[in-house]
Amino acid sequence: MSGALLEGILEHMAIVSIAVLISSVLGIIMGIIAYWVRFLDSVILWVSEVLQTIPSLALLALLMIIFGLGDITMIVGLVLYALLPIVSNTYTGLKNVSPHLKDAARGMGMSKMQRLFKVEIPLSFPLIFSGIKIALVNSLSVAVMGVLIGANGLGTIIYRGIQSRNMMNILMGAIPVVIMALVFDFGMSKIEKKLIKRTK
């Protein structure tokens, strides 16, 4: 049983990390585009908000129609679900970089790209990081539903427990999920505070 639990934890982590990684890259790029292209900002933010408004089971079921049963569907679902906090935090972070610093960077003759990578992203990184934290913690919880669309992870153990009405089994699957969520939330909040201190 402990082997199955370890396997469940590893699978769960793998699915969530891949999804959050993809979502971070995608979300940051979308956030930058929203920041650069003025008329796109409301569209991009609106789309990511709508994606998160869709009930998770509904989103997963709809994705299953396209991608079939399995881990891929779950990862796609998590990527879409995790976009909002990352996109909106990236956008807000970039937008809120002090205009004086932006002017200074422009005045020193930095190109748009140099300003982005040398000034704007480093200064808004704490907020972007906080968006990734929210996405990760949410995804750990949502990923449990993978079992309903044939994906692996701790959901399998929990679901088996529900079907057999076995509290022990449910707890065995649930406790690692909650612990992982709390540990990541705590640890990443600590890092976030340090990052904020450094950019202040």
């Binding site: 949502v142 539903m145 529900i162 076995n166 509290m167 449910i170 709390l182």
Partner: peptide, 17 residues
């Protein structure tokens, strides 16, 4: 903390209890 407990798990608890 309650918020981080996945919905499936909470429903499982409720079902059993």
């Amino acid at each position: 903390t309650i918020q981080t407990i996945p919905g499936l798990v909470m429903l499982g608890f409720a079902l059993v209890l």
